[in-house]
Simulated scan of single mutants.
Amino acid sequence: MIHILTDTNSIANHFLAELRDVDIQNDQMRFRKNLERIGEIFAYEISKTLSYEIKNTTTPLGEAKTQLLIQNPILATILRAGLPLHQGLLNIFDQSDCAFIATYRKTRKSGEFEIYKEYQTTPDLNGRTVIISDAMLATGKSMVLVCKELFAQYKIKKLHVVSAIASEAGLEHAKAFLPNASFWIGAVDAELTSKAYIVPGLGDAGDLAYGGKGEKR
């Protein structure tokens, strides 16, 4: 199932517009905050799909029946660009355990590249609902690599994939390899360049959020 945030009018469109705006992007804190806000919106939307139970809540004047979440999802993110989006999800699911995965590209002389996983720390994901976030779904290769490895290690109950912007090609790739996942995407752009940049996209989300990268060591 695919949910596109910009298919309906909401304040999220303003946050996405600011993420794309080349002038507003000069403010790193605002860029991170807008990704965080989008994460909060997605968390609210995903919360509607989760399981609840009725419990009594004691007030100063009596008791009220309340539908409470049975179990918090586990929040996973791909470092480093996914961190602000992850924080937005965590602001809403504030009792969730978290998983962190780092990946990197290795470019060949031909210009083609492969994705490698470098680091992973996760709680037990067996039987759990997992929400995994990354700011951009460009080729979709990083997301597919990470999720396939998680599925190989754990019996995940349900997977939700969250991304602010995806390319059409990246989303199709991810859907093909993760057919049982639900995708929550801010906006989908048509073009993907030979260097795997989404157009119009917004540029390098990691650099815009945290500054340029030095030499990898």
Rank of each mutant, 00 (worst) to 15 (best):
A176K: 11
E40F: 08
A99Q: 06
C98Y: 12
Y119C: 06
N91D: 14
Y154G: 00
R108A: 13
Q153N: 09
E45H: 13
T139R: 06
F151M: 09
E53L: 09
M143V: 04
D27E: 08
G62F: 06
I156C: 02
S96A: 09
I41Q: 09
Y210A: 02
T57Q: 14
K117V: 00
T103D: 03
D97C: 11
K117E: 02
T58K: 12
A102M: 09
Y197Q: 06
V130C: 09
R80K: 10
S182G: 12
L192T: 06
K195Q: 15
H160N: 03
F113G: 02
R32T: 00
A205C: 03
S167C: 08
K155F: 07
A169Y: 11
A209R: 04
A99E: 02
F31S: 05
I2T: 14
E118T: 13
G39P: 05
V130R: 05
Q95F: 07
N26I: 14
G111F: 07
T107G: 10
I115L: 04
A174M: 04
E114Y: 06
G170N: 06
N34W: 06
N9H: 10
E18L: 12
A152E: 04
R20C: 04
A196M: 09
E168A: 15
Q67E: 15
T139G: 08
Y119G: 04
Y52F: 15
F15R: 09
L125C: 02
K158I: 10
G170Y: 00
W184Q: 04
E172D: 12
S182I: 06
A102G: 08
G140N: 04
L145S: 01
R32D: 00
I185C: 04
Q95G: 12
A164H: 05
L192G: 01
T6K: 00
E40Q: 10
F42P: 01
I131D: 05
R32L: 03
T139Y: 11
I38C: 06
I54Q: 14
S182M: 07
E191R: 10
G127R: 03
R108K: 15
S96T: 07
K33F: 10
H14W: 14
P60F: 03
K55P: 09
R20A: 03
I74R: 07
T49E: 13
E172M: 12
V162K: 04
L90V: 15
D21C: 00
T193M: 01
L90M: 10
F151T: 08
K33V: 13
V199I: 15
Y44A: 15
S182Q: 11
A81N: 02
F183Q: 01
I74V: 13
L202R: 02
E53P: 09
P60N: 07
G203W: 01
I24E: 12
L171K: 10
S110I: 05
L50E: 05
